[in-house]
Every structure is written in structure tokens, then in C-alpha cells.
Design a protein around this nucleic acid. Structure first.
Lengths: 105, 105
DNA sequence: CTGCTTTATGCCTTGACGGTTATATAACCG
DNA sequence: CGGTTATATAACCGTCAAGGCATAAAGCAG
């Protein structure tokens, strides 16, 4: 019942591997277990964290639980990143400025 | 000597506060200490982590060390996020499709 | 109902991390 | 030089989370 935010959840290396896997196609738990070469409980626990953070959603199909990504937190992350974009555009602008300045004899 | 990656470094709540503060203007350590209302050693340690992850750079000015953001990791984060963008564009497309379908009697 | 498969939970150990106080290092000022 | 400011490091502690194994729970097959 922790409720950690999406970014913190995604940051963990193993969970990022899970997220990267789910990006291309939805997966069952055993799918992920074989991909990550980790114990099933470990994977289930990571999935629980991701679920409670709203990063993934699960649906039941027969005995399997199919996990897929939830777009929302990625949009949020994108929104958070937005104001940082001018960071490197400004950087490039400064660089260009510098080059122009240098070419003037 | 850990060498954690940028995303993991940024994910930590306190460090995200530092990064958010540095986004608008560069800061000295004491600046950050007063902002975060935390002990100076704690701030210095977080700055060390951010430094080793390449998130920030430091320069010396008198006795102060001025910290500023390094654009690179944010570009990397943006690049990592890029393939996820189609996640919500697809999502929107599907939604629109669904609405169109529903309007046909 | 009895297995069989798939997933979730409980318990435990271990290692890492965030925070503190105390101290070292470094750069300025007089 | 001595003193003061600014930052980094050391030593320590409490907490927490990630991983393991064992076990429960849930859904299907026969």
C-alpha cells in the first residue's frame, strides 16, 4: 500500500527492463520470468509495484494475468521533462552563438 | 564509486527537488541547503550522486561551488521516452476509432 | 473433487541508501 | 600566520527494498 510515484517505480533497473519489454508487446508473468531470468515471485512483486504506481494494468486471461503499459504515467513523465527541453535548445543556441562569434576576425 | 545511471539518480525525491531547483538557476550548496531545509552534508551527498551520474556539473567560485544542470542526461531521457510516445498516440487513435465506430448506426 | 498450472503473498536475509553529527579540506580575509 | 566561511568526507544508524524459498490462492482440465 505504498503508492510510490511512477518515476520512482520506473527508475529501478529491473522494473525498467520490464517496462521496456512491455513496450513492444503485452506479456504474461511467465513471459517476463523467462525474459528476465529471475524468480517468479520477484517478478510478481515488481509488477505489483508497477501496478500500484499506475504504470501497468493487468487483465485476466484463463489462468494467466496479462500485463500491459498504462500510457498516463509516460505522458506525465513527458510533461515533467518538457520544461527541461529548453535546457539543451538553449545550450545549442549558446554553442552556435559561440561559433559565430569565433568566425568573426 | 557506485556509478548509478541518470534516471535512477533523478528518481529520488530529494534529488528531483534539487534538479527542479537547478532548472531555473544555478545554485551554490548553501543555496540548496536553505531551499531544501536539510543538513548540508545530506545535500552534498546528493550532489555527489548527481555529479557522478552526470546530471550536474560543478564549478568553483571563491569558496563556493556552483552547481548547474548538464543537458546530456535529459536528452538521453528524452530519447528513451521517445518510443513510448506512440503509446499514447496509438491510444488516442484507438479511442477516436472507437468513437467513430459508435456513431455509425 | 483431484490434480495441474499460473500467479500472488509471507517470511527472511542482506545490502544499500538517506539522514544525522562530527571532522577534515579548501579558499578567502585580515 | 590565524580566523572564518563554504564544502566535502567519515563514521554511524535506522529503515527499506530487492531477492531468495516456501506456500497459499485462483483458475482450468480431467
Amino acid at each position: 500500500m505504498a503508492g510510490m510515484d511512477a518515476l520512482t517505480a520506473i527508475a529501478e533497473p529491473t522494473r525498467r527492463r520490464i517496462v521496456d519489454a512491455l513496450r513492444t508487446r503485452e506479456c504474461s508473468v511467465t513471459d517476463l520470468v523467462t525474459m528476465l531470468r529471475m524468480s517468479q515471485p520477484a517478478v510478481s512483486k515488481h509488477l505489483r509495484v508497477l501496478r500500484e504506481a499506475g504504470v501497468v494494468t493487468a487483465s485476466t486471461r484463463a489462468q494467466q494475468r496479462i500485463y500491459r503499459l498504462n500510457p498516463a504515467p509516460f505522458r506525465e513523465l513527458d510533461a515533467w521533462l518538457a520544461p527541461y527541453r529548453q535546457l539543451w535548445t538553449r545550450h545549442l543556441a549558446a554553442l552556435e552563438e559561440h561559433l559565430n562569434e569565433r568566425d568573426k576576425p
